[in-house]
Design a protein around this nucleic acid. Structure first.
Lengths: 195, 195
DNA sequence: CCTATATCTTTACAGTGTCAAGTTTGGATA
DNA sequence: TATCCAAACTTGACACTGTAAAGATATAGG
């Protein structure tokens, strides 16, 4: 097994998957391209033929993260709609849950300078994710645009959701983190519900 | 000048300063201990005698960041008090402004895994910073604790402030970033003001 | 079948953090 | 005051990193 086959089949796919695994295991800052290549069963220079450099691989992985992120928010909203719950709170909770379920990927998406955000693929993926979420905020009854330069209520909601996600993710908000899973979920919904 | 003096005087201090400069110039992820040493005018192994490793230097720098951060919030509140403005909004604005003024340091403090947050000095510095801020939230008229496990309004306010800071810092909230300095400041205050 | 090309490997290089062993210095002790 | 010791710093070495260049192999198209 693991024949030294020259043609892997879909090495690009395998490298992104391997990078994802290494990412969640080692963290963003300790990620090594050579270990990713080894995990995929190829030589350390093989990735260069599919990605311009290490940042390129991270960029592709980040773009995929944003697509999965957008999908998670969408399904959460749809589920809430059928149950006649607030879709905005549901999307916010899904936002936070995605961060807690994929901590390192979320860090890569929102707190790292390594991915190239000028890359067209990544730019498109992140843009659609944000726009979908902000559209949910806009269509919320309590957050109508009041016609200024900026949609203040929308930015406020986004800030709250994103701040909660990152503070929980980085272990800062201990009073919430120390709760049991059920109580924590309830607290998150409460924090995200309009006062 | 720059004698090859064996005894620097206060190399620990000089290394932290050099790391701070390198940090803001290069970013967290591209920081090199050897370049920091070179900037301080010492050999690449000199830092080891003042910090156990590279993370130790970053930890000390991060702790200093939290102390400066706490001081910035405090002065902002005091200024607001004399002008009979809302101290919570003032502290929130100072929170965001600190992030925008010291982007790399803020990233180190809130979005990096490199500093050792179990370090007693760093733990103490970050704890006092958070507690001071949360105390301001608590004493705000609109955010009284309702007696549950968690002070929901306080966590909500903290999330909003922190989320706004990080979204602006990482260039995500483009509708606010594209404003002029004056309008941006006004938008930040609006977002942080209780609806 | 045969060759062109994409795919992957090997080798090499500069840079990284850390460890071990030297060198210098300043201060305490006798 | 002379001496010695410990602290401060340097030098050299090691394993690791990402990337570039050149060689090897297999697959697709003629």
């Amino acid at each position: 097994m693991t024949k030294p086959a020259y043609h892997h089949g879909d090495l690009r796919r395998a490298l992104i998957d391997a990078a994802h695994e290494e990412l969640e295991a080692q963290g963003v800052e300790a990620l090594s391209l050579r270990r990713v290549a080894k995990r995929a069963g190829v030589s350390h220079a093989a990735p260069a033929h599919h990605f311009v450099n290490a940042a390129g691989l991270l960029t592709a992985l980040t773009a995929e993260g944003f697509r999965r992120f957008a999908a998670a928010l969408k399904t959460a909203q749809e589920k809430a709609a059928t149950r006649r719950q607030d879709p905005l709170t549901a999307a916010g909770a899904a936002y936070v849950e995605f961060a807690l379920a994929n901590p390192e990927l979320f860090s890569l998406m929102f707190a790292s300078a390594k991915p190239d955000f000028d890359d067209p693929e990544l730019d498109a993926a992140s843009m659609t994710a944000f726009q979908n979420f902000l559209q949910t905020v806009d269509s919320s009854a309590s957050a109508k645009d009041r016609g200024g330069d900026v949609n203040i209520p929308a930015m406020q909601r986004w800030s709250t959701v994103h701040g909660l996600a990152t503070l929980l993710l980085t272990g800062r908000m201990r009073s919430v983190l120390s709760l049991s899973a059920a109580k924590r979920k309830a607290a998150i919904v409460e924090i995200l519900s309009e006062a």
